[in-house]
Design a protein around this nucleic acid. Structure first.
Length: 492
RNA sequence: CGGGAUGUAGCGCAGUCUGGUAGCGUACACGGCUGGGGGUCGUGUGGUCGCAGGUUCAAAUCCUGUCAUCCCGACCA
């Protein structure tokens, strides 16, 4: 393993890949396009899960679990959804292997064990869930039905990247059923807000809330609400989506309820999800050339102690002192690690925790014992200072909050500096090509224009922002009238 | 699927052109000196050279086939 990472400026993509592997978050597996999430990376996911799960429950949702497999006949019921995903589905056709008579010691698929009906490995669970909901919903009294599931899904991507796009990934998917259109829309918008709050408060990743254009909308949805984040290399990342599904799935799966007037109606639906892709976004929002930078609220280890000593006697003295602080931090719910390994020198440990993004590092040596001091280093600014031990716990507790805020503020400033208003197509191309980030431009609202712009610049409409200002303007490409600006960017 | 490249120790690589005892760095194990930013010295473990076949006295090296992976495209909520 080489000692330093590729610099972001040299090759951003290479930097990202190296960082994920060296920080011990994940690695490529024996299965093409699928990753192994290692304990440190999984710990971040668990922290994300815990918070999101809490937020879902607070907004009235319950968890359940549905099957991995979807019979093809169910999968194809909602046409647009099926069509949208058909190209990237893994399909189970057989249920048994047998010894291969031509190749001793090898197995082959038993040709006799062909399934009557193929099973699609879920790329998303609307189909299996809505076929189930049919049996759960009869009356308006059964509504709203507010369910979330934590699961894995498979999408056979041509090209994969750790966390950002893998063939199998972990996510949560909420699937709700409502009596009215307005209630369903409110639900979809509420979840968009939940995602935005999570991204900003916990990931310290600023996002823009908006709605997708027709061509970027989820297959089978009436509207897709999105949160869009901006990465350090100027590319946008779709960080979460919440869909208003109208009555499309209710019709496809014949899910009706009896309303208060005794009349049958189709239910209104939403679905919403975020995935392990968020970890990719987290990395590309904050990390630097020294490694990962984690916001304290999601860091598996928030504080690490590194002892500096000569000989075992000194280590014993230091350990005793450090253990009292470790206990004090734990009482406050701060996750702390004491690294007393004798196999590495302090400098190597410093580098390791920088690579792994631990927000606060505390070094304590014999000199500190004499002076009642410690050296506190923060990962976000890479600054260090020597402070008195007297207020260590309070100091670090405050510092963690400061780091969380600072990471968000820095990311917000970067993001805001990379939203550029343009009024001509030359300007548009120049900004996309040279500056990157979001370009706020007028658009005539047609798919043709969107497609042409994509061909020419590789930029797509990331969203029509919720807070877009109504203003008369002309499409940056066709010159046709437009009432508000939309955001374009190159995207992951 | 089109174009390019690569498979040799856990990881990163040299050796292949010109066939002749399997190498280096790192990691790992043990010991000494060390210890406030990636230490040092010594000893040691670890490889059917992707797989199959062929040529040869002899193949990591040459030939044929095959599999896999990576990169650039196409694809992608």
């Amino acid at each position: 393993m080489s000692k330093s990472l590729t610099k972001r400026e040299e090759d951003y993509s290479k930097w990202y890949n190296e960082l994920v592997v060296k920080a011990d978050l994940a690695e490529n597996s024996a299965v093409r396009g699928c990753m192994v999430i290692k304990p440190y990376g999984y710990a971040i996911w668990e922290k994300m899960q815990a918070e999101l799960d809490r937020m879902f429950k607070e907004t009235g949702h319950q968890n359940a679990y549905f099957p991995l497999f979807v019979p093809k006949s169910l999968f194809e019921a909602e046409e647009k959804n099926a069509e949208g995903f058909a190209k990237e589905c893994a399909v189970v056709t057989h249920y048994r292997l047998q010894n291969d008579p031509d190749n001793p010691g090898k197995l082959r698929v038993d040709p006799e064990a062909k399934l009557e009906e193929e099973l699609v490995v879920r790329p998303t669970s609307e189909a299996i869930i809505w076929s189930t909901y049919k049996g759960w919903i009869q009356s308006y009294r059964d509504l709203p039905l507010l369910i979330n599931q934590w699961a894995n899904v498979v999408r056979w991507e041509m090209r994969t990247r750790l966390f950002l796009r893998t063939s199998e990934f972990l996510w949560q998917e909420g699937h709700t059923a409502h009596a009215t259109k307005s209630e369903a829309i409110a639900e979809a918008r509420q979840m968009q807000q939940v995602y935005a709050t999570f991204a900003e408060e916990f990931m310290a990743m600023p996002v823009i809330k908006g709605v997708k254009s027709d061509s970027e909308r989820f297959a089978g949805a009436e509207d897709t609400y999105t949160i869009e984040a901006l990465m350090q290399d100027g590319k946008a990342l779709q960080a979460g989506t919440s869909h208003f599904l109208g009555q499309n799935f209710a019709q496809a799966f014949d899910v009706k309820f009896t309303n208060k007037e005794g009349k049958q109606e189709y239910v209104w639906a939403t679905s919403w999800g975020v995935s392990t892709r968020l970890i990719g976004g987290l990395i590309m929002t904050h990390s630097d050339d020294f490694g990962l930078v984690l916001p304290p609220k999601l860091a598996p280890i928030q504080v690490v102690f590194v002892p500096i000593y000569k000989g075992e006697d000194q280590l014993l003295l230091l350990s005793e002192k450090i253990q009292t602080y470790v206990q004090a931090f734990k009482k406050l719910g701060i996750s702390v690690k004491y690294d007393d390994r004798d196999t590495l020198r302090p400098g190597a440990k410093f580098a390791e925790y920088e690579l792994k993004g631990v927000p606060v590092r505390i070094a304590m040596g014999s000199r500190d014992l004499e002076n009642n001091t410690v050296e506190v280093a923060r990962r976000d600014t890479l600054s260090k200072e020597s402070i008195s031990q007297d207020n260590l716990v309070e100091y670090v507790s405050d510092l963690l909050e400061k780091i969380q805020v600072n990471l968000f503020d820095s990311a917000l400033q970067f993001r805001n500096n990379h939203i550029t208003l343009v009024n001509s197509f030359d300007e548009f191309k120049d900004v996309i090509e040279n500056k990157g980030g979001f370009v706020a431009a007028h658009w005539d609202g047609t798919e043709e224009t969107e497609e042409k712009i994509k061909e020419l610049t590789k930029a797509t409409i990331r969203c029509i922002p919720n807070d877009a200002i109504e203003e008369a303007g002309n499409c940056v490409f066709t010159g046709k009238p437009s009432s508000k600006r939309v955001l374009f960017a190159k995207a992951y």
